[in-house]
Design a protein around this nucleic acid. Structure first.
Lengths: 187, 187
DNA sequence: GATTCTACTTGACAAAAATCAAGAACATTT
DNA sequence: AAATGTTCTTGATTTTTGTCAAGTAGAATC
């Protein structure tokens, strides 16, 4: 099984080798350089990718500051989910934090899968439901934890990110300032 | 169109009258009294309901405090989504804040819809994707706004809740203490 | 190797929010 | 109407987190 097939399997749980091959064939390799934009807020969110190497930051620039929503690394998927699904302008901007290799599927091809595989929409549903659950946990962390507790929890599960990603972005993603994160880490 | 059919339509966007009738027929009226539990953390999350009258609070009791995740009113659906979809124990406890009338579908009946309507899983997917987007917005509010800004935004969109629901639960749902909410409201 | 740029840290201070404790307002029951 | 039980408010205080400003460290560029 190729790495791409593993990514597809881990997110969509596709079982039949033939189906998996069909789906994977729609994904095309793509490379973006550090600093390049994968997606811009307001533009068409018409692709979904798995990250082979590199790092992408999902954020939104407001008047005062940039708010980092998420950071994706190898093995993660990346897209503006609501824009991709509902064919609406992207809510997020997505930028490469390092040179990044992707496997990308265009929305038109993604939509074809649903016509080729009868159970595809159910797999999609389960995929999105897992994304929902992840966000539910994240909301809970903001309702019930201090900045330090959020940091500790996140650090336990994402140690490897801390070598690769500027801490200011992790701070933003956890809902605190870089200074606060720095002070928490000093302990 | 019955009220139930309107609820189903607004969440699942079902178009054909016959299909709508089939789906609606699986929902049964149910009544729960103020203080009763709709669902308990750890128990089977095997039903999904629309609220006809009344109020339900979705929360989790931790060692220190109860964390209110959401409050549902007339026209909203209510369930433990991840438990319902993945057939796992409920993550949340759901309790009636007032006498409440519901239309409830059991999971076994819900699953039948998928066998009767070929496009059901796609509608489900879109339904859950909208839930996902709502949570994304909520995360963003915690990453980028102060307690006062979160209150103002929520109040603008949910004025009617404030007459019906004890403010302490709204405070918890917005990620602040009842005292902080009270002080913000004094202004 | 010096320069520039960026990320990170640190300190002093300010603001926001939590905590603790008391009391007031309101509804419910008796 | 009195008593009870919640919920909400308010004040005093502490803790947490943010802001501003300066300085340091490290990588990248020249």
């Amino acid at each position: 099984m190729t790495e791409l097939e593993q990514y597809v399997t881990s997110y969509f749980g596709v079982a039949e080798p033939e189906e998996l091959e069909i789906i994977s064939s729609f994904f095309k390799p793509e490379t973006i350089k550090k600093g390049d934009y994968f997606l811009l807020t307001g533009k068409a969110a018409d692709k979904l990718s798995f990250i082979q190497t590199g790092l992408l930051r999902v954020f939104l620039a407001t008047e005062n500051k940039e708010v980092t929503q998420w950071i994706s690394t190898k093995g993660y998927f990346v897209t503006d989910l609501s824009g991709f699904i509902f064919e609406q302008p992207a809510r997020w901007t997505i930028q490469a934090l390092a040179d990044t290799e992707l496997f990308t599927i265009k929305r038109e091809d993604y939509k074809k899968i649903g016509t080729l595989m009868s159970k595809w929409h159910e797999l999609e549903k389960l995929f999105i439901a897992r994304c929902f659950t992840t966000l539910e946990d994240r909301i809970f962390s903001h309702l019930s934890m201090s900045a330090e507790e959020r940091y500790t929890l996140f650090f336990e599960h994402n140690k490897s990110l801390f070598n690769q990603v500027p801490l200011q972005y992790i701070a933003s993603m956890l809902g605190m300032t870089p200074e606060t994160l720095s002070r928490i880490r000093k302990k």
